[in-house]
Design a protein around this nucleic acid. Structure first.
Lengths: 349, 349
DNA sequence: CTGTTAGCGCTTTCAC
DNA sequence: GTGAAAGCGCTAACAG
């Protein structure tokens, strides 16, 4: 009885009485051998159960794996359940797939740990939404292309949107109605973990390169231009963009006495806005009459419902596509700024 | 000027004047060398920019890549935007990550195409929601572990839920209220693509091993037991579990004359149920007074809203965890049947 | 504890 | 066209 070892290219060559080079060529370079021989090799290979060159050996030999890794800021568990991150991955996957590449998912886990050893099998890295100071970047294998998304890294091509401009625009729209008590609900704005009202004790993350600060800046500019004192506008913060974490914070906010409760919520994500909307509905607070709400992201969930969310649509899938194209060299490796669009829904008409 | 070639283990060995084995051991087997030497090697490696053994070479040598592939039924673009699939992937990722493995995503694309060449780098495969007749299975490299999820494959460990039982239970609950015109909204039930009412012209997919048929069977059993003629209960079908595809079908259903419009929708997914709910709200159809709706899956979106969806919760993340544990050999490779739970929401109290 | 060495399976010159 | 041979970077036996 023969050992049940997986058949190798060499085995097949011996079996067919041809050289290993011909087998290799049959699979990789059709022009290097006669069609007849190629046919014979391919059909015999199928018959004998040889399913093509081993990817491990091939990638060692050629130096390329046809695998692109996406490094996600948060844990995979979180990212995969976040609509924005999922859409982004969709876009990446679509392009990679169309070009015969596959997608390896790497967690950014913690703040400065090593990426898994198998990470460096990838031909290139797309780094999504990581904090700029994250050590992880330096730990990625050098010499291989990196594209960063949603934040700037030195000497690294980037794809992102103009967060402060988009925030400015949606805030301007919301402020047309002259709110008496606007509030801003931030996402990961503070250095210390904070789920609730932001107080003077909290320090904010650096105002360069963090999404939250850019969006906050846009909101503040709009508020100032409308004659409001930004110091007077309460800031709330949320650490994680999930129902579970948003819920209690927004409940606390909405359960304030009515004369104190905000009448406009500028939210930094659709998830936050949708949670606010649900909780308002449960409390009989009318949207938009008693409370106007704006979101950010434009996820499907906010648009296929009644009332529809007023928000900024960012093309996350498009971001993914551009990032993938850049990493594959199909697009020049430069800064790419994607457009956003104001979606006028029912929560802040 | 030295060539900018990536530093190899051998280079480092020469540089430090030690053997390659020691370098390798420093990274892989701490007990095989003195702590002093190990420290020196590690720190020098960091200083000289050697970021550890190359994954391609290592995997060729050891035969293992520490990469597990998940083969998704649909395109990645679709799967990543589907809450159920995303939750499943979350569960897989969580376990893999905890055990130093990484996740490679493979599209099932089409019905019988080759998996990408780089696929066979994986140490094992988790096959999610594929049709049982899919050729893809045979194309996966032999000799490597496979776990299938949500459908049965010969000689292949599987994790799934009892779809027909769960459907039976939720239908029994819904039928307590004696609906006059129940309808069933299926997901991929017919052989031919069909978005709308299922007619006698349509042939259904085989009743073995397809989720839809199992769920339909559960619904039918419950209907019969409640004295209803299953032949009289209209079947509708939807091909893709997205807002875009569900919308028109459910609009057509809801826009029927009132005396003809169903007063109970047994939906095969939460996405379908949520779309029905939104469209009903837009039309002023009261839920649950005029129309009761049940879903299937128990996604967060259906629970963190008002009214809450009545549905069956299946633990997709748990499925992912179990599948990952099986593929890593942490759990015996056998049939695993996960529990489901009836969630009584507001759409069918 | 350390060093030498033989491949893992493949691709790709290069000579025929 | 085809075949022989070198070696991608690493690990694990084994010998010292």
């Amino acid at each position: 009885m023969t050992p049940p070892r997986r058949m190798t290219l060499k085995d097949l060559a011996r079996e067919l009485g041809v050289s290993t080079a011909s087998i290799s060529n049959a699979f990789n370079r059709p022009d290097q051998l006669s069609p007849t021989l190629r046919e014979r090799i391919l059909s015999e290979a199928a018959r004998l159960g040889y399913s093509g060159p081993d990817a491990k050996a091939r990638s060692l030999r050629t130096g390329r794996s046809r695998i692109i890794a996406v490094v996600l800021a948060e844990s995979l568990t979180y990212s995969l359940n976040d609509a924005v991150a999922s859409e982004f991955l969709s876009g990446v996957a679509e392009v990679l797939d169309a070009h015969g590449h596959t997608l390896l998912l790497l967690p950014g886990r913690g703040h400065d740990s090593q990426p898994a050893g198998s990470a460096n099998i990838a031909d290139g890295f797309i780094v999504y939404g990581l904090m700029p100071n994250n050590q992880l970047l330096n730990r990625l294998p050098a010499q291989r292309p990196i594209v960063s998304v949603d934040f700037d890294v030195d000497d690294c091509p980037t794809v992102h949107i103009d967060d402060s401009e988009a925030s400015y625009h949606i805030a301007c729209h919301a402020l047309k109605q002259q709110p008496r008590r606007p509030a801003i609900i931030n996402l990961r704005l503070t250095k210390e973990a904070c789920n609730g009202r932001v107080t003077p004790e909290h320090t904010l993350l650096p105002n360069t390169s963090t999404i939250s600060r850019a969006r906050l800046e846009g909101f503040h500019t709009a508020l100032s231009e409308h004659g409001l004192d930004t110091q007077q506008v309460p800031l709330w913060n949320i650490e994680e963009n999930t129902f579970e974490v948003c819920g209690p914070v927004l409940a606390e906010l909405l359960d304030q006495p009515e004369h104190q409760r905000p009448d406009l919520l500028l939210c930094m994500s659709d998830r936050i806005a949708l949670t606010a909307l649900t909780l308002a509905e449960q409390r009989g607070i009318r949207v938009p009459e008693d409370l106007r709400i704006t979101g950010f992201d434009g996820i499907a969930e906010g648009q296929y419902r009644a009332p529809r969310l007023t928000t900024v649509r960012q093309d996350s899938e498009g971001k993914g596509r551009v990032a993938a194209q850049m990493i594959l060299g199909l697009l020049p490796a430069e800064q790419q700024l994607l457009k956003t669009e104001l979606l006028l829904g029912d929560t802040c008409p």
